[in-house]
Design a protein around this nucleic acid. Sequence first.
RNA 1: GAUUCCGUAGCUCAGUUGGAUAGAGCAACUGCCUUCUAAGCAGUAGGUCGCGCGUUCGAAUCGCGCCGGGAUCACCA
Length: 630
Amino acid sequence: MTLEHTLSQKTIEALQSLYSAGIEKVSFEKTNPDFEGDLTLVVFPFLKASKKKPEDTATEIGNYLKSNVAEIASFNVVKGFLNLVIADAYWLNYFKSINGRSFIKPAPENAPVVMVEYSSPNTNKPLHLGHVRNNLLGFSVSEILKASGSKVIKTNIVNDRGIHICKSMLAWQLFGNGETPASGGMKGDHLVGKYYVLFDKQYNAEANELLEKWSQGTFENEELQLKYIAISTKLESAKDDEAKAKLKAELKDLAKANTPVFKAAQEMLRKWEAGDKEVRALWETMNGWVYEGFAQSYKMLGVDFDKIYYESNTYILGKNIIEDGLAKGVLKRRPDNSVYADLTADGLDEKTLLRSDGTSVYMTQDLGTALERAKEVNFEKHIYTVGNEQDYHFKVLFLILKKLGYKWADGLYHLSYGMVELPDGKMKSREGTVVDADELMEEMIATAKKTAEELGKAQDLDTADKEHLYKTVGLGALKYFMLKVDPKKKMLFNPAESIDFNGNTAPFIQFNYVRIRALLRKAKEGLHNFEDVEVFTHNIHLLPKEKELLVKLHSFDAVLKQAAAELNPSLIANYVYDLAKEYSQYYHETNILKESEKDLIMFRLQLSNTIGIAIKCGMGLLGIEVPERM
RNA sequence: GAUUCCGUAGCUCAGUUGGAUAGAGCAACUGCCUUCUAAGCAGUAGGUCGCGCGUUCGAAUCGCGCCGGGAUCACCA
């Protein structure tokens, strides 16, 4: 039984015996640092029962608790706040139970299974900053779930088919001259991305040509002419700029859809679907290049997957669900033969799941994929790590599955995260304002190197160790920067100012870990074998900072639990920072090896060691390494 | 327009299951390296928690209404 649990019980007892109040639940909170004490009970809610002044009520409860709970050393009352001081012996005993141990226990054999899907890239261009946030979040959430007693299966569904892939393929055929990653000296994903951009250039040029032709009255056919006239008439009478821009975009889209290069890409997609040998071969080759490139990026980022799905295998799924849904009356068929789910009663819209020509849409394949996964794995939860622009999509997806009566649908969860924005707005791949993931990682490592050299750090390391350190620090800074913000919120990334290495950052936390390790090495040289002796619990008067640190360590489990419940790594990030910051203050104001009493030296070394372990565990949950020296 | 998320220091963010005087970091200014690693520590300055009303002993936190911003609203993915 935890102390807080005991205190709650005793407080309920106190209220019963003092005021005959039948209160069922009371909770304590951490005492505000400006006041003396560790835990605080707010007594205002009990005033009705006590019919006494706040101060008197608090004092009476305080007296009761003091004489009934051994761990309470003393208490004080400020207005309606009862501040309890917990005896040092309690904290020392607690420390004895965790000294030198890991804060993370492996999940039991029969642990519930959670699937975490993340990353989900398209194979027509390299990973960018948005993917970085997605990958780091998915990976960290997986680690957090594992650490809190779940078995995690990390999955990645690769969008390896569709018109966008054909665009890259076509541009490569048109302009590539047989270029390969090897001949071009480029990572495969970047090479394919280059041709995607070339396609877009061509696409735009041809569209502008068409618009020019149309404005002079030359049209390929009458239908097109009618559409053109309809839109441009509206454009002429449009009043505000917003409406004009919208109509202009509509015209451009019409032109784009009629460019020869786009029609060729569509034709290629048709051939792909028909299983055309040549198209399939090119598709396999180019996707192969991309996968090699992605593998490198993933390795650098430090993320991995237990199972990779490909949409080329899953995009046909879902049609049998339609039959099932129609039979159950959850889905309906329109006169034109299209099938939809009517969700208007749930405050959503009608969602079409099968077009009138019988082909399926994105939602249909997501339904099918979910069902497939549920058959394959008996998961307790299935988490989709996808940006918040798809909130509505997942709402609809989950609702339809629930309506179809699948029990496992209750375990589906959309881990929705905010967009990464640049100082001048959203990233747009077409406008070339994307931040490339590989470049960003290289820059971070280079900055770490530069900073370390300027500060004269790590001079005694050999070249390989130095390179590893720069990677650990540079990528650590990047990962921490992205994970310390609440996933739900959109975040701002300013490449010009880059990411800091001071203050609330990974390098600061890593530095404190390194300092602990250095201290412990020195201690062993001085024959202080703190690992071999028991925690000395008698006659130690804890310094305020030492108690604070113990309280902080004590809350590791609670923070982990909350982070797992909310799927929120930022709680861990902020926790580790607070811990490191407090240790840093402690380190400055306290002598450890220079302390005269041997027992105190041992205790302080043990405390430092255990804090180091907590930092390492916490950073591990974020996917961030800690170095031994820097 | 509808739905939904958001608005806290100059900037980036904590704090939101209602509790005491709203916290960090960056940027600015002041000190501290012959002493366990200064990617550090200590300090100064910086706030109408978007605005208003309400609920409450008590509101950054809950409710309602405004103002401002993002996202989504296809037989696209």
